[in-house]
Computed example of a mutant assay.
Amino acid sequence: MEKTTTAIGGARTKRSLRALAATALAAAALALNIVSATPSSAAPGCQGVPAGWDHLTQGMCLRGGESMSSPIQYGSSGLVTTEEANVLSYQRDGNLVVSHWKTWIAPDVGGAPDFGSLIELIQRCVAFHDCQSGDTVVDVLWNSGTQGRSTGEAVMQDDGNFVVYDGNGNAAWSSGTYGCGGSYLWGRMQTDGNFVLYKGHAPGDNAWKAVWSTRNGRTGEPC
């Protein structure tokens, strides 16, 4: 089953995983950011993000219903095991969404949590959307405000621009990082809930420089 998170400004939801997979949440979008971009840049041959990756590089894209996640983090709340992750999803409603998912899974009766079974359950949930146990709290952290547009692709272009295209090849939203491509740009879904575009570093400089993020928008870092 596919996870669908429709953006709710500042809202938090708590439902069973099965209910979350079956029911879309009510929508209240951020302001639509219409941009100018070259439709031909959204090449039909763009590469999908490999399973298990938390980042995408130039030439990669998310298509409708696809997502990528930060590494899953495990913890506990009392005797209850928790797992959480941050997800960048390009939804079938045309919206690009960053959300934080946290699941509580009760331990087996009479004993401590079986972490082997827990990890297997989480992996099955992430890989196959076969989620059958526990409650999940979903916080929408950011969205592109492009819901209602026909679904196309969210593309990390060679020119450094991260662009959401609708099904007609028209640009619906952009990160505004055109021209950063020569520095080898890539985007990462981080464990702190921030999706960040980084440019390559100069020889002798080991620091990756952020040029845009969902939390702060375009930075002052030149391309």
Rank of each mutant, 00 (worst) to 15 (best):
P107V: 02
A7D: 06
L96S: 06
A21R: 15
P39E: 07
D54S: 15
A27D: 11
H100M: 04
Y198W: 01
M189K: 03
G148Y: 08
S67V: 09
H129K: 14
A51P: 10
S69K: 12
T191V: 13
N216A: 12
A31H: 12
L56I: 09
S175Y: 11
E84D: 13
V196E: 02
A29K: 10
G182H: 01
E84W: 15
S36R: 06
S133V: 09
S117C: 03
T23M: 12
P222R: 03
G116D: 14
I105K: 10
Q132M: 11
N194Y: 03
W212E: 13
M60W: 07
S175W: 10
R215C: 09
L30M: 01
V35S: 07
L79Y: 12
V137S: 01
D158H: 14
A207Y: 11
C131D: 06
N161I: 01
L25H: 07
V126I: 13
I8Y: 09
T6Y: 02
N33Y: 08
R215G: 10
R218P: 02
E120H: 14
N143I: 01
A112C: 05
S144F: 10
S77N: 13
E153Y: 09
F162Q: 07
R12N: 14
G169S: 10
Q190S: 15
A172H: 07
D130Q: 07
G78Q: 03
T13P: 00
K14S: 14
N206A: 06
L32Q: 13
V97K: 06
T214P: 00
L25S: 13
T146R: 05
P222V: 03
Y90E: 00
S89L: 00
K14L: 13
G160I: 00
A127F: 09
A210V: 04
Q58N: 04
R18G: 03
L141N: 03
M1S: 10
S76V: 12
P50D: 12
M68E: 08
S150E: 12
G116Q: 12
N206V: 06
L79M: 13
T136D: 02
D135H: 01
D192M: 04
V80D: 05
I72H: 00
V35Y: 04
A37S: 05
T103Q: 01
D93S: 05
K3T: 00
Q123C: 11
G64Y: 10
G9P: 04
E153T: 11
R18C: 02
V87C: 02
A19P: 01
N143Y: 03
Y165F: 15
L32H: 14
M60D: 09
D114V: 10
I105C: 02
P39M: 06
N161M: 06
A112M: 08
G181K: 09
